[in-house]
Design a protein around this nucleic acid. Structure first.
Length: 631
DNA sequence: ATAGGGTTAG
């Protein structure tokens, strides 16, 4: 590299030579990204480039335009060809590259026009199948592919398999699979990976594992395909196990995509320990992590309730995209840090940041305000979001506003919003109103909200549970029971309550009413008896009347046998040392009684209990919960 | 050198 001081003395000027438009020069210009120069060299050269080299020259140029996604240059060249040598547009090489160029520039209609112009050829057909798939026109990809039985290419196969997995078109996927197997050639790695993704997404797990284990070799994408499929299907523990297996038996290492996927699994089951391990891997790899994996890392800490680490990652990363900001805001929202959320938003929309808030941003802000009872701030943000920030109000924002008002006890006003909003309210709005009525004991309005809710979501058992709990909270046992009976008569089953608890490096999962073997262990009994004693001293009275406990009558009275989070917390106490926080993830809303139990347990054991339920965190510390008993 | 695969926030 030259510095100013080291600049060498001027060399003698070489004799001036006329610039000749050699393909070599063209090539190096386009390769180095000088697209303007390359294009004008080609179009304006005198004498013109001989026709025999045109094809090669145009093809090089188009390739550069594709890699630079330069629509402008591509269109210029396209127009030039139309005027000068339209015959070249029919050449498979040129035609397929033009299709690809339009595809990578998201101009699918232009690509389609180029394709439809003339007779098909295999390269253009392939490019078009890929183009449809890449641009989300999966049906078109399928029908173009299926409409041609004679052509086959690995590129078309992998693209159409991707579309098949999006559309769950397993039948066509299997047909492609059969073609691949029948072909004389070695199956292509990318196609095999796409098959794994297809089967894990919409086949049986057996089929997916068979496809995976049957591969002659597996690269990092093969592993990632299976890992991300597990996450899609909710097999989080399987994802973590597979990641472990990947590190032990595979020499392919991992990519940021691997870690992003694993982190997403961690955050969905609050697997903080595993998430930390992934974080350590990132640090150890000494590579610069990309923004996607850093965002996922933030999300993992956020969903595990470790706000401070989420902040640390956020502050330490090189730059922030919209997702980074939204993840940080969401972290504050679900962890009950409304003040921090509002401050961060000011920073986000301040000078020089360069991101624009979107709908997600305002969901985070409005729900922060709702949880904290910041009615005025929330209302103001709701008013500002479209006029000041140009973000269109959608149904979820109205739902947040209704939640904000309803939680604060302004139930009439919340109802008015629900009834006057410009779109159909939807289940989330009436559901949130019903929850507000439950919180404030407004049984009359609660009944109205419930009726609206049942019209929209007649088969959602969770709504009946909420409705019944509203009565139960008011000690209206008969009504609560009636709702429960109505639910059973409709054949609706409450989703099985499930909790996950982290102990050491492992996640353990417990089902409501289940966990028999652990519950009959002597350690469990000992801890349980101690807890009952301590809790009685604290004045805790088990609420055995709470209906809809998802256990049978006989065990209802045994407080510790019912809900999965209770089993999980005792398991955590038994299996972790003094002072170690216990982290629980729950798939349903926590009930009043369990919430009381957790508060007392946190006090008598002096442990921090962090519990995530379907929509927020509860940090139980010394007998109190961060949610202020408001959820 | 015609072109491809796996990923994050509500």
């Amino acid at each position: 590299m030259w510095t100013l001081n080291a600049f060498p003395p001027n060399p003698p000027l070489p004799p001036k030579k006329p610039l000749k438009p050699k393909p070599l020069l063209l090539h190096s210009l386009s390769k180095s990204g000088h697209l303007d120069e390359a294009l004008s060299l080609l179009l304006k050269s005198h004498p013109p480039i001989p026709p025999t080299t045109n094809l090669e020259a145009y093809s090089h140029l188009l390739h550069s335009f594709i890699t630079h996604k330069s629509l402008r240059h591509g269109e210029l060249l396209h127009r030039h060809l139309l005027h000068s040598t339209p015959s070249l547009l029919r050449h498979p090489l040129i035609k397929s590259k033009l299709i690809t160029l339009y595809s990578v520039c998201a101009r699918i209609e232009s690509a389609r026009l180029v394709f439809d112009e003339d007779d098909d050829d295999e390269p253009s057909w392939t490019a078009m199948v890929v183009a449809f798939s890449k641009n989300g026109l999966h049906e078109d990809s399928l029908s173009l592919y299926a409409g041609n039985a004679s052509w086959r290419s690995d590129f078309a196969d992998s693209a159409v398999l991707k579309s098949c997995s999006v559309l769950s078109a397993v039948r066509l996927g299997r047909a492609v699979h059969a073609r691949v197997l029948k072909s004389a050639r070695e199956p292509d790695q990318v196609v095999l990976n796409a098959l794994v993704r297809l089967y894990v997404k919409c086949g049986t797990l057996d089929e997916a594992l068979k496809a995976f284990d049957g591969m002659p070799q597996r690269n990092v994408v093969s592993w990632n395909s299976l890992l991300s499929g597990f996450v899609d299907r909710g097999f989080f523990i399987e994802c973590l196990d597979l990641f472990r297996r990947m590190q032990i038996e595979s020499s392919v290492g991992f990519s940021w995509v691997t870690l992003t996927t694993v982190l997403s699994a961690c955050s969905q089951i609050t697997a903080l320990y595993n998430g930390r391990e992934v974080h350590a891997q990132m640090v150890k790899s000494r590579e610069e992590p990309d923004i996607v994996v850093l965002n996922s890392l933030m999300d993992m800490y956020a969903k595990c309730g470790v706000v401070e680490y989420c902040e640390r990652v956020f502050r330490g990363m090189g730059g922030h995209d919209l997702t980074s900001w939204n993840t940080m805001l969401t972290c504050y929202a679900i962890n009950g840090c409304a003040r921090d959320a509002l401050e961060l938003f000011d920073e986000m929309v301040g000078r020089g940041v360069g991101v624009k808030p979107d709908g997600v941003t305002f969901v985070a802000l409005l729900s922060s305000c709702a949880h904290a009872g910041f009615v005025d701030e929330g209302r103001r943000l709701f008013d500002r979001m479209d006029v000041e920030f140009g973000v269109r109000k959608k149904v979820e924002h109205f739902a947040c506003l209704v939640d904000l008002l309803g939680r604060a006890g302004l139930i009439d006003e919340a109802f008015e919003v629900a009834e006057k909003m410009p779109m159909r309210p939807g289940g989330s709005v009436w559901g949130s109103l019903l929850n507000s009525c439950r919180l404030h004991g407004d049984v009359k309005l609660g009944e109205i909200a419930a009726m609206r809710l049942f019209e929209i979501e007649p088969n959602n058992a969770g709504n009946y549970v909420l409705f019944s709990n509203m009565f139960a909270r008011e000690r209206m046992w008969e009504e609560a029971e009636k709702v429960r009976v109505a639910m059973e008569e409709k054949g609706l089953k409450k989703e099985v309550g499930r909790s996950w608890v982290q102990v050491g490096s492992r996640i353990h999962s417990f089902v409501a009413g289940g966990g028999v073997s652990f519950r009959s262990s002597s350690e469990y009994k000992k801890v349980w008896e101690e807890l009952v004693e301590a809790m009685e001293r604290e004045g805790y009275v088990p609420d055995t009347d709470v209906v809809l406990h998802d256990v049978d009558e006989g065990t209802k009275a045994e407080w510790v046998c019912g809900h999965s989070e209770r089993i999980a917390v005792v398991f955590g106490l038994v299996n972790s040392g003094d002072g170690i926080p216990i982290r629980i993830m729950k798939n349903l809303r926590v009930c009043d009684d369990c919430h009381n139990v957790m508060k007392v347990v946190s006090k008598v054991t002096r442990r921090l209990i962090v519990m995530r339920d379907t929509n927020r965190f509860h940090h139980f510390r010394n007998g109190a919960c961060s949610c202020g008993d408001f959820w």
